[in-house]
């Protein structure tokens, strides 16, 4: 190693330490011998900077979701900063009546993602970039998971990361057990978070078809939402609409019409589309009348 510069030697040993660390850590996780204290030491080492890395990793997941196509910050300067990878989770909850709106939004999203060349040189450079807008399908969604997992490790308070990872795991990959594990980890770190409870309820309803547990989870989510201060409740009114409308749907499916109407009435108060909810309530009332 005499001919090797000290900086390179340092890098070499650092890489060796990293490799040994990742291999042994991975095995330790597998055996369940890693404790919360061990993880704390790693996080302490990174300090508050870990949130920056976590944000970057969520961004990476979004890049993968778009099969590598991603506009730069300069291309996105006048566009909303919503990430499709996380937005998909919320959009999935949109009511069937809003499907057309969803498609329109998707077209807008695609147009916003496509970079525009303003001169011949940029046009030439774009020939070497991915310019076709697409989302991962056919089980390839799994490729986003490492980045989401890393983001969770680095920022355990980022709720969106848990819900996004769990959504993709249970929805297209059929990995319900892993999705549940992610959400449980999220709840361990954020025990009173209504979004995690809501997403867990979705998992129980849609994947495990366990309406009883889904109901309990959503009612717990509702309670957690109500326990927030006034300002927070005002800011997250849409979340209430989602929880209540899902509860309404569940009760409707189970034939508990009065409870369904009660939940939908609550949803209507905060929903951006109260007419659609009212129409839904009318349908349930009609069904109830027929009984």
């Amino acid at each position: 190693m005499k001919a090797v510069s000290p900086k390179l030697q340092f890098l070499f040993w650092l890489a060796l330490a990293y490799t040994l660390g990742t291999v042994t850590y991975s095995r330790a996780v597998g055996r369940g011998t890693v404790t919360a204290a061990d993880e704390g030491a790693f996080k302490k080492l990174l300090g508050d900077g870990r949130r920056l890395f976590a944000g970057q990793f969520v961004e990476m997941a979004d890049v993968y979701f778009h099969s590598g196509m991603y506009p730069s910050i300069f291309d996105r300067a006048n566009q909303p900063a919503t990430k499709a990878v996380t937005a998909a989770v919320n959009e999935h909850d949109a009511h069937a009546d809003e499907e057309h709106e969803h498609e329109e939004h998707e077209d807008e999203h695609a147009a916003a993602m496509t970079p525009v060349a303003e001169n011949w040189l940029e046009a030439f450079i774009h020939r070497f970039r991915i310019t076709k807008h697409s989302h991962l399908t056919g089980g390839n969604e799994r490729e986003m998971l490492p980045w989401l997992k890393l983001a969770i490790e680095l920022d355990p308070q980022s709720i969106e990361t848990y819900t996004t990872a769990a959504y993709w795991l249970r929805k297209d990959l059929g990995r319900t057990a892993e999705a549940e594990a992610v959400l449980r980890e999220g709840l361990r770190n954020n025990p009173t978070n209504y979004e995690l409870l809501f997403e867990m309820g979705k998992l129980y309803k849609e994947n495990k078809h366990d309406h009883e547990r889904a109901r309990n989870l959503w009612l717990a989510a509702l309670k957690c939402w109500e326990n927030q201060d006034d300002k927070a409740r005002e800011d997250t009114a849409l979340a209430l609409s989602r929880i209540a409308s899902n509860l309404g749907e569940l009760e409707e499916e189970d034939g508990h019409y009065p409870q369904a109407i009660q939940h939908l009435e609550l949803a209507k108060q905060v929903s951006p589309n109260p007419k659609a909810i009212q129409a839904w309530i009318e349908r349930i009332r009609a069904k109830r009348g027929q009984q």
Partner: peptide, 11 residues
């Protein structure tokens, strides 16, 4: 190889 050895959701 270190990155490859990390287990992400047993996939």
């Amino acid at each position: 190889l270190g990155a490859l050895s990390v287990n992400f959701f047993d996939d």
